[in-house]
Write a protein that binds this DNA or RNA. Structure first.
Length: 816
RNA sequence: GCCGAUGUGGCGGAAUUGGUAGACGCACUGGACUCAAAAUCCAGCGGGAAACCAUGUGGGUUCGAGUCCCACCAUCGGUACCA
């Protein structure tokens, strides 16, 4: 085989020299904006996962370009984040240095992959030119009331004196020192994403996104309609609201439960219960949310010593606290109806609390407690006899008329916590002044630069707090001495608007120009992992809507179509990780086979949406496929050079043309839908047909053959860009194959010949009848029924019914 | 736990969306070429002698189910400070 890494180098050099992938915004062709989720430069090199995401997506972009679009296909780096900081703490290498180095390496490797990116349109989120505008966006949100500060819990390690990320907490302990992690409340910045909950939910309907991802978002937003009911203390000395989706069961309330961390707990706990309550709260703070919400774990709780009055019937019920109630969801308080809720039932049984039935099945069927379905009401005063549906409405209406409750829509979605007590991120552009409070940094003073020389080893303070030069400043309002906000922004903030920056990546005046972005947006196809279904993909939608409302752009959704690539696992079937020792590096394969063999192999060997365990058994075969193509090109350009062409179109020619057109049709549909494995299978079939044509033909139509081979290379070129250029050149072409048009289907040449119609008896295949493929369905039926073997079936069986799916299948229903 | 996926030959994977299960390829077997090997080319290739049996398991709907419904098992992703 001649194809190798050297061929890659040759063409990469030419492409660069000729500026083949330069994006021209003034091009009159229709725009097509496609991008992949940019990568985090944590390792020094591109790994297999990057290749699997980027190489096929790059082939897709090339395909769209050949189809005649003005393709915009940018690439960048999500460069801030925890791993670089942790790496620095471990090795002493500054995050900026390691990140810069990694980006350079990865950029080079993306070129070696054959990526058709224009690096003039690129973003690196850790560069001041970029994060200046991340900060600017923060300020716009702040001014609009969409960024605010409140106290919120973090994972805190007492021994390391630092905030821990969830992934640094193993079994409730710090991964570094093993100390049990506590929940500690700190002042934190939030974005008011909940203001957009309804629109984020509604907007999903019109998106060309995987249904599974839409479902994840629907559930993440978690809309539920219900009623807030006010419970007051015996003497009106305190009150709180509970949220319930089952107001019809309110007569069955036998106790209420508060989240242990709620402030009101301190107020209402009686003297003799104080000790147990305090102890219980302390234990709760050690648990994470997943454990707290687990329905598997045994429910626990303690009595506060206080009582509240049920507003519908005046009954006095005890107030408990339990860790399965979360402060952040709903009102942080629930009414417990043990007779009609599984969790409350188990809790009541355990602590000997009363159980009061208020709903029974509508049609008096047998039931067991807890009975959680809708039914009709009993023991419910004037509501007795109503159905659950009727009672829900009535009770809610009556409560709200007496100001004792109201109908509410509750969302599971929480506001987006954007503060990080870390170094390697964009500084939050806020100044804290004793007199003026929180003051945004004036836009002319942006960016707030992240200082290089900072002690970022953990010791209880945000790293930036330790930099005097950074912290000290004057208040832009009153001119007094003030201090800067020491926290940095969540990296998800950086990645929530990067698709807006790409088309205008070098703008020094604005984050992005409105006209430019309105023309380019939305992104036509966005490709990335489904692990981002809930967070990144909601944040970026929120940001688009917020910036729209602030008047900076004029569209509602950032990504029209979304594709998730699967994940390549280690050869052992587990997720690749250094600790498991099952990582596979693409580098050796590229050295040995060249980038295109590798690209083709990963596209052919896996379902793009599914991925799977790595296995290199078939890579030699792909290399052989390239050799077969080389031999074919060699044959037509040398051996057949002097043979005269027979320009007749006979049966064999018609068959070759049919296969060619079918290949064009299938490959076009397949690549459009990211089905690269079947696209390549069809490409292989065309090669087989071409070779068969040459083998079985001493009088071949050489002109036709060459035409077919040229289309074959065009079809291959987005998938194997370097190799196809080489073949194209050998066919005597001067211009890049990338400048060629994608072949079009000639409908007239698409059909012909015969096809097999399966004949079944009771759904079981008995035989096939060969018919003219172009005949009408009626004629085909006549042909089937006149077949002697089919006639025989009628003698053999007692035929009750015939089922004919026109042109597809013929089935006889018979009596046994 | 909750939410979302996935499960098809020895292997990677196809299947016109309810209509011939196993396209394309790997591995394997036989043959041609060769002194021989490699490469290449040709043929075969789910199981079974056949009737038939086969798409994680068990039910169901249907003339017909890999595809739809119910229950279960296994694996993977996310679960709000990994990105």
């Amino acid at each position: 085989m001649n194809y190798s890494k050297e061929v890659d180098k040759k063409w990469q050099g030419k492409w660069k020299k000729e500026g083949l992938y330069k994006y021209n915004p003034d091009n009159k062709k229709e725009k097509f904006y496609t991008m992949e989720m940019f990568s985090y430069p944590s390792g020094a090199k591109l790994h297999l996962g990057h290749w699997f995401n980027f190489a096929p997506a790059d082939s897709f972009a090339r395909f769209k370009k050949m189809q005649g679009y003005n393709v915009f296909h940018p690439m960048g780096f999500d460069a801030f984040g925890l791993p670089a900081e942790n790496y620095a703490i471990k090795t002493g290498i500054h995050p900026e240095d390691s990140t810069r180095k990694n980006i350079e390496t990865m950029k080079r490797q993306l070129e070696e992959m054959g990526g058709s990116y224009d690096w003039d349109y690129s973003v690196e989120t850790c560069m001041p030119e970029y994060y200046k505008w991340t900060q600017w966006i923060f300020i716009q949100l702040y001014k609009a009331g969409l960024a605010y500060k409140k106290k919120a819990p973090v994972n805190w390690c007492d021994s390391c004196k630092t905030v821990l990320a969830n992934e640094q907490v193993i079994d409730c302990k710090c991964e570094r020192c093993g100390t049990v992690v506590k929940r500690k409340k700190l002042d934190q910045w939030f974005f008011k994403i909940t203001d957009y909950a309804e629109e984020l939910l509604e907007g999903l309907k019109d998106l060309d996104w995987p249904e599974s991802t839409k479902k994840v978002q629907v559930n993440w937003i978690g809309k539920s309609k219900g009623t807030e009911i006010i419970f007051k203390g015996e003497n009106n000395e305190y009150q709180f609201k509970v949220f319930t989706t089952r107001p019809d069961t309110v007569f069955g309330v036998t106790y209420v439960v508060l989240a242990p961390e709620s402030a009101i707990v301190q107020k209402i706990t009686t003297e003799d219960q104080k000790e147990v309550v305090e102890k219980y709260i302390e234990n709760t703070l050690k648990l994470n949310e997943i454990d707290r919400l687990s329905t598997e774990r045994e429910k626990t709780g303690v009595f506060t010593g206080s009582y509240v009055i049920n507003p519908v019937n005046g009954e006095k019920v005890p107030v408990w606290i339990a860790d399965y109630v979360l402060e952040e969801y709903g009102t942080g308080a629930v009414m417990a109806v043990p007779a009609h809720d599984t969790r409350d039932y188990a809790f009541a049984k355990k602590y000997n609390l009363p159980i009061k039935e208020v709903v029974i099945p509508k049609d008096d069927e047998d039931y067991e407690l807890p009975y959680t379905n809708y039914g009709k009401l009993i023991n419910s005063g004037k509501y007795t006899g109503l159905t659950s549906e009727e009672a829900k409405k009535m009770i809610t209406k009556d409560l709200s008329e007496k100001n004792k409750g109201q109908e509410t829509i509750n969302y599971r979605l929480k506001d987006w916590l954007v503060s990080r007590q870390r170094y390697w991120g964009a500084p939050i552009p806020i100044i804290n002044c004793e007199k003026c409070g929180t003051v945004p940094v004036p836009e002319k003073d942006l960016p707030v630069l992240l200082p290089y020389d900072v002690e970022f080893t953990p010791d209880g303070e945000s790293p930036l707090k330790k930099s005097k030069e950074f912290m000290e400043c004057t208040c832009p309002n009153c001119g007094r001495k003030a201090t800067r906000e020491a926290d940095t922004l969540d990296t998800f903030v950086c990645s929530s608007w990067y698709e807006l920056r790409y088309p205008d990546a070098k703008n020094t005046e604005k984050a992005f120009d409105r006209q430019t972005i309105d023309k380019m947006a939305p992104v036509d196809v966005y490709v990335g992992g489904k692990e981002h279904a809930a967070m990144h993909l909601i944040y970026v939608r929120f940001m688009t809507k917020a910036l729209r409302d602030l008047g900076y752009l004029d569209f509602d959704e950032p990504f029209k179509k979304l594709i998730h690539q699967g994940m390549i696992l280690g050869p052992d079937g587990n997720k690749m990780s250094k600790s498991k020792g099952n990582t596979v590096s693409p580098d050796e394969y590229i050295d040995q086979y060249g980038a295109d063999v590798f690209r083709m192999y990963i596209m052919f060997g896996f379902d793009y949406r599914k991925g799977g365990p790595w296995d290199d058994k078939g890579i030699d075969a792909m290399s052989k496929y390239f050799s077969r193509i080389e031999r074919l090109v060699e044959t037509v350009t040398n051996e057949l050079k002097d043979i005269p062409s027979n320009d007749e179109i006979g049966l064999k020619e018609k068959e070759l043309l049919r296969v060619k057109n079918q290949t064009i049709k299938s490959m076009t549909e397949d690549i459009e839908d990211f089905r690269f494995n079947t696209a390549i299978a069809r490409n292989m079939e065309l090669l087989n047909s071409i070779n068969t044509y040459i083998r079985d033909n001493d009088k071949m139509n050489k002109n036709l053959l060459i035409e077919v081979i040229e289309d074959f290379i065009r079809l291959l070129s987005p998938l194997a860009p370097h190799f196809s250029e080489e073949m194209w050149e050998q066919l005597g072409k001067a211009q890049s194959v990338y400048e060629e048009e994608w072949p079009k289907v000639n409908e007239a040449q698409l059909t012909g010949g015969t096809k097999e119609i399966p004949v079944q008896v009771n759904g079981k295949l008995k035989m096939c009848v060969s018919v003219d493929a172009e005949a009408s369905p009626e004629k085909i039926l006549t042909a089937i029924k006149s077949d002697s073997k089919v006639k025989e079936l009628f003698n053999q069986y007692d035929v009750q019914k015939e089922i004919y799916v026109p042109g597809r299948i013929y089935n006889l229903v018979v009596k046994n």
